[in-house]
Design a protein around this nucleic acid. Structure first.
Length: 284
DNA sequence: AGATGTACCTGGTGGC
DNA sequence: TGCCACCA
DNA sequence: GTACATC
């Protein structure tokens, strides 16, 4: 399941191969995977354009394309969310078709960007720069990205406010802070020594600082390890290679094993229909 | 506002 | 081997 | 991973 570190890893690799690349077309195999607009209009908006840069906010990838032929303004944005099982592959466009390759974006170098997504929860959207906010309101509602400049303990404290909900729900709420999912919220909470079911507003200033610091530290470490690839899992980078951060997980998928910090047995509980891992002793 | 359940999908795993 | 419940 | 309905 791609979260911020996995998306950031793909962004870095994508930036290397895509910036300066001229795009020659786009093909949509599964309409459901294209959020906006229709396939032929989407193709028209990127055809002949050159990639200026690849950005990211939270779990969203933003590919910036200039439009030399542009009808209104000069730029388009290709926005991609990988959902639970989405992958992006950069390969020769002659490579054999794949059952779950739902969107293909062709580069001039005879390579293509393939959006592969078995579970189909991910999506691709194309928007003209001026209409992004209108067409994808979800982007406007995102909370600060932890690896950007606008996230500090004060911001986090203000965003926690008087929220009574559980800490893990807060971390996974993309409108509070963007990029954390099931794996990294568990890892961050363990690193900060906080229980997942603490009411968010029960944190004292010292704990808020610890939480902020560990959000930044855990995500940064995970990026430098190129993300997490679970045993049965879905995440692979642009070239099909797994990340290494799963080797550093301290709680996620480690139920029954000893806590690396205190030796107590890691527990697994159910929260919001998904697994939550924590140390019952050193997370308070 | 918060908690809970359901829906959207496919594929791999482990049990019997 | 097939079917199925369970998980991501 | 997310959106939405319901208590």
């Amino acid at each position: 399941m791609p979260e911020l570190p996995e998306v950031e890893t793909v962004r870095q690799d994508l930036s290397r191969v895509l910036v300066g690349q001229k795009l020659s077309g786009m093909e949509v195999g599964r309409p459901r995977s294209l959020r906006h607009p229709d396939p032929s209009t989407a193709a028209r908006w990127i055809e002949g354009g050159t990639v200026l840069g690849v950005g990211r906010v939270g779990k969203h990838l933003l590919i910036e394309v200039d439009r030399p032929t542009g009808d209104t303004d000069g730029r388009s944005l290709v926005v991609i969310h990988l959902g639970m099982s989405g992958q992006l592959w950069w390969l020769p466009s002659s490579t054999a078709a794949h059952r779950h390759a739902h969107v293909r974006i062709f580069g001039e170098s005879a390579n293509e960007l393939r959006f592969v997504d078995p579970r189909t929860f991910g999506w691709v959207a194309v928007a003209r720069a001026a209409e992004v906010a209108t067409v994808l309101p979800v982007l406007e509602r995102l909370g600060p990205d932890p690896l950007s400049g606008d996230f500090d303990a004060t911001v986090l404290s203000r965003r926690i406010g008087h929220r009574q909900g559980r800490l893990k729900a807060l971390l996974m709420d993309q409108t509070v802070v963007s990029g954390l999912g099931n794996i990294y919220s568990d890892e961050v909470l363990h690193a900060a020594g906080l229980r997942w079911d603490r009411p968010a507003c029960s944190l004292d200033p010292r704990e808020i600082v610890a939480l902020h610091d560990q959000i930044v530290r855990v995500l940064s470490d995970a990026v430098s390890c190129r993300g997490s690839s679970l045993a049965d899992s879905q995440y692979r980078d642009l070239y099909g290679l797994p990340g290494r951060f799963q080797e550093r997980h301290r709680v996620y998928a480690r139920a029954g094993k000893p806590c690396a910090r205190c030796g107590e047995t890691i527990r697994k509980e159910r929260f919001g229909g998904r697994s939550t891992f924590f140390c019952p002793s050193c997370q308070t």
